[in-house]
Every structure is written in C-alpha cells, then in structure tokens.
Nucleic acid binder design. Structure first.
Lengths: 123, 123
DNA sequence: ATAAACCCTGACATTAATGTTAGGGTCAAG
DNA sequence: CTTGACCCTAACATTAATGTCAGGGTTTAT
C-alpha cells in the first residue's frame, strides 16, 4: 500500500510516517516512480510505534528495540527492560516535581483565600 | 548597580536578566553609555520573578501581575488567583497523564518479569 | 488531454527560557 | 595607551514530533 493508505488505516499523518522512516522505524521499499510501498505488516508496525510513543519513549529509544519486539515478545528483548526502568525513573521524578509545585500552589492559594477572608471580616 | 552585579547577587544569568527585560518584567534605566542601571530593589524583583518561574508560570503570565505583587500582598492582586487555578488544573492534568503512563509501564515491566520467570522454570 | 488526487523532497515553523557567539563599545588600572 | 573586565545588540542554537508550504512529478478518471 502507499503512504496515504497507511496513514488512513492507522490515523497517523503522512508527515509522521515519513518522519518515522527518517528515524529508522519504518523501511518501505521504493517503487520505480519513487513512491513508498508498504507491506500489510506496516500497519501493525505503526501501531506498535504509536504504543511506545504514547509511553513517552523517543523515536531513538524505540529504534533500539523495535526490530526485536516486532518478531518476539517484549520479554525476549533485552533492550526493553532497561529503557522501561529508566523511563519509570524519569516519570517518577517528574511526578515528584509536579507534586511539589502542586502543594506550593495550593498553599499559596489557601493563603490568599485566608487573607481575603480576614480582610472581609475586618472591614 | 549594573547587570553583572545584579546577576552575581541573584544567581540569574546576565542573559536571563536581559530576557526578563525584553518580556517586560524588568525596566532598568539606561545610562548615557547605554549600560543598564538597576535599583537596589531590582534584586528582590528578580527573586520574585524566579519564584513564579519555579511555580511553572510563564514570563507572560508573570508580567500580568508582577507589578501588583511587588507593591501589594498577593491576596490583593486579582489576577493571581485565576492564574493559580489554571496552573493547578494543568499540573493535575499532567500528573494524571504521568500516573497513567507510570501504571502502564509498571504493568508491562511486571509482565516481562513474569514471562521471564515462567521461561526459566520451563527450561 | 486535463483535472483531481496522489506522491516526492526540502525547508521553515512551532515552544520558552537560556546558552553561546560575533562584532563591537566603555572604563579602570597599570 | 594598552589590557582586561565590563557592557551592548543581534542572532543562532537547543528539543522532538508534527504541521505546513513551495515547487514539482505521477496517476487516475473523465
């Protein structure tokens, strides 16, 4: 199938499909006229790429194990677990940062509301 | 004081001080030779800017209420609370997204470990 | 044979605060 | 009067995936 069809089937933009190819995630063959030709399997491949992107992995990280997970179960791909561990650590760090900002914000909001409340009763 | 001294006193880079000015957060006067001249008060002002940046607010948002909070308590600045509420909502949305990715990652990691465990006992 | 709907490459835009560099003034101490 | 430490503006770089546009081929259906 050609790129437009693959885009329609997967919901991924043509632009992104070309980008994935540039990042080494897809390798369609080229017809004589220069058009990309994708196998039926490319559809699943694109969905797999999306799955990992949605986990917050970069195309570079995905490129490191995509070939393996497309032919094996994840558990057999040595590269996956370390990347998951690293990503998990990043996510937890981000959550901690956000939680601390959240607490800070909530305290400041409460202070404002308290002061305004006092203000009203003093007037 | 000149920009280098303000940078040294606050720990904020000269580049950032110029950027804050461009964003309307600082307005030093200009000497005849073109140098920026900051009042002693600018030091507190910069620390206040940093405080809000650390809460995740943009320079544009800060510009919307900085003038007020520099001369009043936060509670008297009407613009602050809506921005805090909006920021809080964003933060909570981000935390939720990260939590869901985190759960997803943890499940996938557990699956991998389970499958590898089974694998060992089957061999 | 022409128009519509494809496809191609290449390149710039997006975001936001900050770093860095280039090219050039100013000033104080020696 | 020169050196070093300041200061200035302007501009490009950073990040990552995606959008968009320009300029140009190809294919398909009429």
């Amino acid at each position: 199938m050609r790129i437009g069809e693959l885009a329609a089937r997967t919901g991924v933009s043509v632009r992104s499909l070309r980008y994935y190819e540039q990042q080494g995630l897809l390798t369609p063959i080229r017809c004589e006229n220069g058009y990309r030709e994708y196998s039926a399997f490319a559809e699943e491949q694109v969905r797999t790429i999306q799955l990992y992107l949605n986990l917050g992995l970069s195309t570079e990280q995905i490129a490191g194990f995509l070939h393996c997970v497309l032919i094996n179960k994840e558990a057999f791909c040595q590269e996956v677990l370390p990347i998951y561990r690293q990503k998990l650590a990043e996510i937890e760090a981000q959550i901690n940062t956000l939680q601390s900002i959240k607490s800070n914000l909530q305290e400041r909001m409460q202070s404002i509301l308290d002061e305004r409340g006092n203000q009203e009763s003093e007037e």
